[in-house]
Nucleic acid binder design. Structure first.
Lengths: 157, 157
DNA sequence: TTATATACTTAGTAAAACACTAGGGATTTG
DNA sequence: CAAATCCCTAGTGTTTTACTAAGTATATAA
């Protein structure tokens, strides 16, 4: 499972599409302006999204993009997998000696964790995010969730 | 939240440490052999892990590494944050016009999602992974969780 | 029918990250 | 002292990231 800024760009763009695509298609220029992502980079991302049928393009003036299916039928995992290319990189696919099972054990543990994370974001749809945004009032200033990285050095014995 | 192969290397190495560190320290050479990670790269990863007190090094012959605290006190999030450097990249920290709240909305939605994923892996400890590995019998061959990437193009209307 | 606005495509590129090699130094054991 | 280990710094080829540039294809509108 890979989860990087590229995936965030894609999710952000799809969110923009879900929020603004109610009345007519949304142009990439709009998303580019709205979200501060370069137009050409968006075009590359949308090429990948289109390949997975997550968006549908309409050409010509007045054109733009629609979601490829209903917002509640598009999971965050769908989006991230479309642009971030699931990387499977276990080296001991049956071959190699696996150090008496020891090596494979950690590999399997990682794969379990990886699958858990995948299943987690698989369950979250674009519609979930949108309805959550409309329900709870969000301020513009957000801060890092409390104690994510800086307190780790202190709390050790 | 970033989750890449680098984080996997770190989690894998920590798992190795948790599994083999019961009787004496584990050397990086051992982990390097066990997990197929280059020694020098491991040293770099462990520099980061040590900085967060997630591991404790013992020098000299017979030395190696111990976990910095109990395995149930080390979360996967701790490990990944130590090596993968939490990237905060919202560009509208109060400044910029935020397009009438529209832009910030998607940003906040992403931040919520990001926090959810973080809290998810925050709840999984090294000890959890180890006990899970000992309980359920894992074969050596693992396959990609069914239908992760290839079925997306077909299931669209 | 010509101009324009959009989607689509390909090529290139600077910067960063990744994973590694190389070469040492510091510290502890025997 | 010698060896094994941790520890540190610098460099390097490859890949990824995010972008620029320069087009082509298609649909709308004057």
């Amino acid at each position: 499972m890979r989860l990087s800024t590229k995936g965030r760009y894609a999710v952000t763009a799809m969110l923009d599409l879900a929020l603004n695509g109610q009345d007519g298609p949304v142009t990439l220029s709009d998303i580019s302006e709205n979200q501060g992502i370069s137009l050409s980079y968006l075009e590359q991302l949308f090429a990948a999204l289109r390949a997975k049928n997550l968006v549908r393009g309409v050409r010509g003036p007045g054109g733009g993009y629609f979601l490829g299916r209903e917002a509640d039928e598009i999971s965050i995992a769908n989006i991230i997998c479309a642009v971030d290319e699931w990387v499977e990189f276990t080296r001991c696919q049956g071959r190699e000696d696996c150090r008496g099972g020891q090596r494979c054990m950690t590999h399997n543990l990682w794969d379990d964790l990886s699958r858990q994370i995948y299943e987690f974001i698989e369950e979250i749809s674009l519609a979930d995010l949108v309805s959550r945004g409309q329900g709870g009032g969000h301020g513009c200033h957000k801060e890092k969730p409390a104690g994510i990285q800086d307190d780790l050095s202190e709390q050790a014995a």
